[in-house]
């Protein structure tokens, strides 16, 4: 090929990759964690993915080559690929191309996002996405701001409606933090949103945990919720119940 004729190499900041089972979409998943996130959620368990510079530059080709090794396994095991973060839509071109290439391999694809940057996802990206794991962090704008520090609720809701209109399946995720996101009214608003959308296949209520605390220590950062206890089973049951009442499938 003549010099200059090669297409520009598309690369992105990749924090790490992992394989997981049943927690990042259906079945066994190859999960790519991209580096960089515009939000600073108080409960974030991966502060090591906040900055693009904390990732390594990887080309789409490199990642696809790695994923291809797992293709058969995840397919046989009923899974696929999940692009997560950080916030994958902070790098929409890289994410879009990665999803497209995985889709072309016949893999089930999932996008794990807050939706805050949903406007950056073009239709081609969403065409290559079989499932969006949409992290709706709060039901009220002021709570959203308190949780994320930097974000606004409206873009996520806009993105959710767009997905519903397109017919893209969604799993709505809600991180339950005692004292922060557990108010009955807060949860009710999220449940109302979820119930009003077509294409919500399930709601995942994720109990807050402190397993990421050590990462804050390693980074020399204070963990804002160091003293917050995980929700007790009763609280978890109540919140899940609020979603179930709206006729939603909850896990």
């Amino acid at each position: 090929m003549a010099p200059g004729a090669a297409p520009p190499v598309l690369d992105g900041a990749v924090h790490s990759w992992d394989t997981s089972i049943g927690v990042d979409g259906p079945g066994t998943r190859f999960v790519v964690f991209l580096a960089g996130c515009p939000l600073r959620c108080r409960y974030c368990h991966s502060p090591d993915t906040w900055y693009g510079r904390s990732g390594r530059r990887r080309t789409v080709d490199e990642m696809v080559a790695t994923i291809a090794r797992y293709r058969r396994f995840v397919q046989v095991a009923g899974g696929g690929v999940t692009v997560s973060g950080g916030e994958p839509l902070l790098q929409p071109r890289f994410t879009g191309e990665l999803l497209r290439r995985c889709h072309a391999l016949g893999l089930h694809t999932a996008l794990d996002t807050s939706g805050f940057l949903g406007d950056r996802a073009d239709d081609a990206l969403l065409d290559a996405t079989d499932l969006v794991l949409l992290d709706v962090k709060a039901g009220r704008p002021e709570t959203y701001r308190r949780v994320t520090g930097t974000g606004r609720l409206a873009p996520t809701l806009r993105f959710a409606r767009r997905l519903a209109d397109r017919g893209t399946p969604m799993w709505i995720r809600y991180v339950l933090v005692p004292g922060l996101t557990d108010a009955v009214d807060e949860v009710a608003r999220v449940a109302d949103v979820a119930a009003g959308l077509t294409g919500v296949a399930r709601v995942e209520v994720l109990p807050f945990h402190r397993l990421g605390a050590h990462k804050y220590a390693e980074l020399g950062l204070a963990f804002p919720l160091a003293d917050t206890a995980p929700p007790d089973p009763e609280l978890l049951a109540r919140v899940r119940g609020q979603f179930v009442e709206r006729g939603l499938t909850v896990t």
Binding site: T28, F73, A77
Partner: peptide, 14 residues
Amino acid sequence: ITNLAGVLDGYADA
């Protein structure tokens, strides 16, 4: 159950 059976299939297949 589904996922564990899937992993066993994947591992055997590999």
